Simulated scan of single mutants.
Amino acid sequence: MSHQGPILLIDDDADDHFIFESILEELGVSNKILSFYDGKQALDYLLTTTEQPFVILCDINMPVMNGVELHQAIIESEFLRKKAIPFVFLTTAANSKVVNLAYEQSVQGFFQKSTSMDSYEEQLRSIINYWRNCLHPNVFPL
């Protein structure tokens, strides 16, 4: 994990992308934000990039490839598993079935999107700060 690497936002809602980017700008987060509108777009990027993303923030319900399918594809790829990119679900679709499925796949976090701007900002601040301070395999050079 590179603290300077891009933050990947994977969500099929353009309004959510705008809100997310606005909040990160307000928080002074300098990481580049890469926006994808389905899991397949993100997977294609991840399989071909030489960049080491900082964190993946992903919705669950999306067309083409949903968030659970994307996370499973990452787990099944030795190349992507070795990158050890933190993967966090940030979604409106929160129920016990999908939360349990996510943690069965060893997701690193699951958040239901807050409905107010203040609480959504606090969620994003907490997620970013956690991963900035967390020791992680890719923080140490090989």
Rank of each mutant, 00 (worst) to 15 (best):
T115D: 10
G109Y: 06
T115G: 07
R132F: 15
K83S: 04
M62Q: 00
S119F: 04
N66F: 11
D59H: 03
E69P: 08
T92W: 09
C134I: 13
S96C: 11
I74K: 01
L124A: 04
V88Q: 06
R132M: 15
F79S: 13
N95P: 06
T115K: 09
F110W: 10
I85Y: 00
N100V: 08
T92D: 08
K113C: 03
V107R: 00
W131V: 04
V107E: 01
P86L: 08
A84H: 13
N61D: 15
S126K: 11
Q105W: 08
S114Y: 10
F87D: 00
Y120P: 01
I127M: 08
A93T: 13
I56N: 01
Y130Q: 10
H71V: 04
R132V: 12
S126D: 10
Q123S: 05
I60S: 10
L124V: 04
M117G: 03
M62G: 02
K113D: 02
T115W: 08
R132K: 15
W131N: 03
I60P: 07
K82Q: 15
L57H: 03
T115C: 05
R81N: 12
R125P: 00
A84Q: 13
S114C: 12
N133H: 12
L57C: 08
N133A: 12
V64Y: 11
L70N: 00
N133C: 09
F89R: 00
V99I: 15
E121G: 06
F89C: 00
V88F: 07
N95Q: 07
A93G: 11
L70C: 02
S126G: 12
Q108T: 03
Y120S: 00
L80M: 02
V64F: 11
H71K: 05
Q72F: 04
R81Q: 15
S106C: 14
I85E: 00
E76P: 04
T115S: 10
L80W: 01
Q123V: 02
L101S: 13
G109F: 05
E76N: 13
T92V: 09
L101A: 13
T115L: 12
N100G: 11
F87Q: 02
F87T: 01
T91Q: 10
N133T: 06
W131D: 06
S77D: 03
V107N: 01
Y120L: 12
V64T: 12
L57Y: 03
N129I: 08
V68I: 15
Y130L: 15
Q123M: 07
S116D: 08
A93P: 09
N61H: 13
Y130G: 05
